[in-house]
């Protein structure tokens, strides 16, 4: 009979399987596609910071909104005509604000999963051995900073409202413009992604233990929970929509896209 006492030597070792994984499916495909998708977003973001074609009346490129600089923001591009950053600032207006939505996505629970898997390979896929000799998780600097996610969420709410305002302005001034509807779809997806955030779910009522004492917050939590179940598809949809909308506005501003209802 096999011994089962703690000191029995036969119990001490795992199965000495010498391969990294025995999975036979294409486990590498998802992290590979994720790597390509997130990389394209990073590359586009760098280009968008360098590029200055941010505005063509009534459209403003989402990567540059809100446009807060005096020198580099055309008058119609400024939020409520306001340019709180004075004329001393001459760099890209996107540089001023991209850290907020960028930080929101960087610390997002879904994106964390996706880049830990696809960039850091920790792990690349379930039941596939990671290549690192040591693992400490999110307990130490810098990864302990992931806990600031809720502050980026507050900022992302503001950014989402501003993008919605930009879409409303475009609708008022050019209701039949293709760009208007691209900005509207983008604003809906960005706000849906923001509201589906796990921190939002926690703040609405997730932190409570007595839902029955807070019926309104419980209803809000129920709504956010439904959105939260779609957090991953909303993350991708809003990422591609913001890139697509931004590129569209810039191409119109450059005159590369030019047709009557552009």
């Amino acid at each position: 009979m096999t011994q089962t006492t703690p000191d029995a030597p036969v119990r001490r070792q795992r199965a000495q399987v010498k391969v990294r994984t025995l999975r036979t499916d294409r486990w590498w495909l998802t992290p590979f596609l994720t790597f390509l998708g997130l990389s394209s977003f990073l590359v586009y973001g760098v280009w968008a910071i360098i590029d200055n074609s941010i505005f063509v009346d009534p459209y403003i490129a989402p990567f540059a909104s809100p446009c807060l600089a005096e020198v580099t923001c055309p008058e119609g591009a400024r939020l409520f005509g306001w340019a709180p950053i004075g004329d001393w600032y001459t760099l890209s207006p996107g540089l001023l604000i991209l850290a907020l939505p960028g930080g929101f996505r960087l610390t997002c629970y879904y994106y964390r999963k996706s880049y830990y898997r696809s960039f850091w390979l920790s792990p690349p896929a379930c039941a596939v051995q990671e290549p690192h000799g040591k693992y400490t998780g999110e307990r130490r600097f810098p990864l302990i900073m992931q806990n600031v996610h809720r502050y980026f969420f507050y900022a992302a709410i503001l950014i989402g409202l501003i993008l919605a305002w930009d879409a409303v302005l475009a609708l008022v001034h050019k209701p039949l413009g293709l760009g208007t509807w691209i900005l509207i779809v983008n604003a809906i997806l960005i706000n849906a992604y923001t509201l589906s955030c796990h921190s939002c779910r926690h703040i609405t009522a997730g932190r409570l233990n007595h839902f029955s004492r807070h019926p309104l917050r419980y209803r809000a939590w129920t709504f956010v929970s439904k959105l939260n179940a779609k957090h991953q598809p909303l993350a991708w949809a809003s990422m591609f929509s913001v890139m697509g909308a931004d590129l569209y506005v810039r191409l119109v501003a450059k005159g590369i896209i030019a047709f009557p209802y552009a």
């Binding site: 999963k113 830990y116 998780g137 999110e138 307990r139």
Partner: peptide, 10 residues
Amino acid sequence: GLGYCNITKC
């Protein structure tokens, strides 16, 4: 050890 979890959802 909750801090070890990097929410990769396996």
